[in-house]
Amino acid sequence: MMPHAVSSLLHMEQVNTEDCEGVSAGAFVFQSRPNHSLTHRQQKLVLWSLATVCFATASGFALLGYWLILPFAGLEIGLLAWALEALRSREGDYETLTIEGDVVVLEWHAGTHGERREMNRQWARVICDCGTSGRNCRLSLSSHGRETKVGQYLSDEARLQLAATLRRKLQA
């Protein structure tokens, strides 16, 4: 999938930054994760109810000698299972940014990929680039010449707000 597609795949949910500030004195924690309204139970229900209907009818016709429906039912349920699995593999995705003392910890996990990176607060710089349109803004933290994206699950508006908060926190 294209990067554009990936970002759209995830349904964003934002944890209010102000709330997080209060977690522990002096520490700033910002966590965000995509939205998932499908529970595991519902997911199983969708797959099994459709698989039951499809295979029951296909097997019924196969018993009468009309077996060519069965492979199509198999392919289709396979595709559905793949789609539901793809959603599930995204369930653990999250992004956490912690600023405590002089240490900035950036941790993210997406599908099978993930990273934990520590930076020195003095060296960390906020890079925010919105181009001319004010859309699709890029927000990342840079240290020692390497950039790491932040706020991937946020809207442009929330990302800009986060950028401002981060600039403030890093200077403080």
């Binding site: 209907v53 060519l68 429906i69 492979p71 199509f72």
Partner: peptide, 20 residues
């Protein structure tokens, strides 16, 4: 969408059997 998923293999099978 449920109905579509439940019935599309039946159509696919029916026309494939016509083809064979």
């Amino acid at each position: 969408a449920y109905l579509l998923i439940a019935t599309m293999p039946v159509l696919a099978g029916a026309v494939t059997m016509l083809l064979t």
